[in-house]
Design a protein around this nucleic acid. Sequence first.
DNA 1: CGTCTATTTGAATGTACTCAAAAGCGGTGG
DNA 2: CCACCGCTTTTGAGTACATTCAAATAGACG
Lengths: 197, 197
Amino acid sequence: MDSSKILAKVNQIAALDQDETEFFESLLIQRPFRQGELIVKSGDPARYMMFVNDGYLMTYYTDKEGNDHVVQFAATEWWCGDLYSLSQSPTTPYATKALTDGELLLLPRAGHLQLLEKYIKFEKYFRIFFFNGIIRHQSRFVENHTMTAEERYQTFQATYPNLEQYVSQKHIASFLGITPEFLSKIRKRLFQKAALT
Amino acid sequence: MDSSKILAKVNQIAALDQDETEFFESLLIQRPFRQGELIVKSGDPARYMMFVNDGYLMTYYTDKEGNDHVVQFAATEWWCGDLYSLSQSPTTPYATKALTDGELLLLPRAGHLQLLEKYIKFEKYFRIFFFNGIIRHQSRFVENHTMTAEERYQTFQATYPNLEQYVSQKHIASFLGITPEFLSKIRKRLFQKAALT
DNA sequence: CGTCTATTTGAATGTACTCAAAAGCGGTGG
DNA sequence: CCACCGCTTTTGAGTACATTCAAATAGACG
């Protein structure tokens, strides 16, 4: 199993020693996936934290009307967005789907708790990890209130440079909080602007 | 100093023993404030975590055009939203203003770090605290993409039952991401609907 | 009382959505 | 290899949601 990426990620924040590294590795489960595969369904028991070792995924929420809302994309070397996996709640309201072939490393909820109990360094790691998540969410919130859909689309492109080739416009639209039709019109406008130069 | 509220809050998540309690209390600074007072300006050095011991505050962001965007309200017994106080960044982009008279308990950044070093229980507390913050942000994100302004306003009223009397509509509008004029129209509509019953 | 700001109201406008239809595209089976 | 199917994307017309601008009214404070 290739755990070099996940270890690099953790070591960025909290440098692990030999023991910690080995114990951490021993808890991880390899989970390959295929393009289009529904890895977690809404309503599933929430059992794992998921690290993307390779590939792209998205996490989305389905409302009562049956409309999907993409909450987050995840690329290689990212943790996947579904944090309900760690909460008290027995099931997750979010679904996770593969956009490409790839591989996850799963950290079971029980393993996560063992890590926290056994080594303080993981408390630190996850504290900082969650903290960074909040900072990100906060600025995304401001973005949503200060920018038009067109600006948000351009921000999306800048933030996820390689992602667009793997994701349908439908899903990008959902992520931006607009309809696919409107995204199509935005893109047309942008192409026309670009053609003028 | 009345630290009963902040202790109750922390003990909900991580039960402190005598030592931990005393050390924690020794780090807190009492900071009364008056209605309308600008407690933190945008660009200020970010030095404290702030707990609202009494009163109401708001945290907002000012964009390049000079428009304010309210990111969060804070009521008694809440931590105040500005988490930049804890990040690497030397200054905060957010401002915090008092909506009423009241009192803060300040936890200096250095004190926060001491807490984390000295007692693992505070690592746990803040890990869980930040985690809960992410879960809240995630559902607020979905809200913003699934609900109309009218629905969001009603959600706001349900979430912060006593707040409306202290906050101007202008600021509520900003929090909801709409103009004050439009909020006024929404309110008119709702009154008219209510009058029919 | 006068001044300043917040709120309300209305008209005109812009942004984004709905619905419907057409065009494009990828995969599958004959 | 081509025809067909299902799904995504594009396009257009009409509509709804929300903003801008301007002016009037109401409230708060010295």
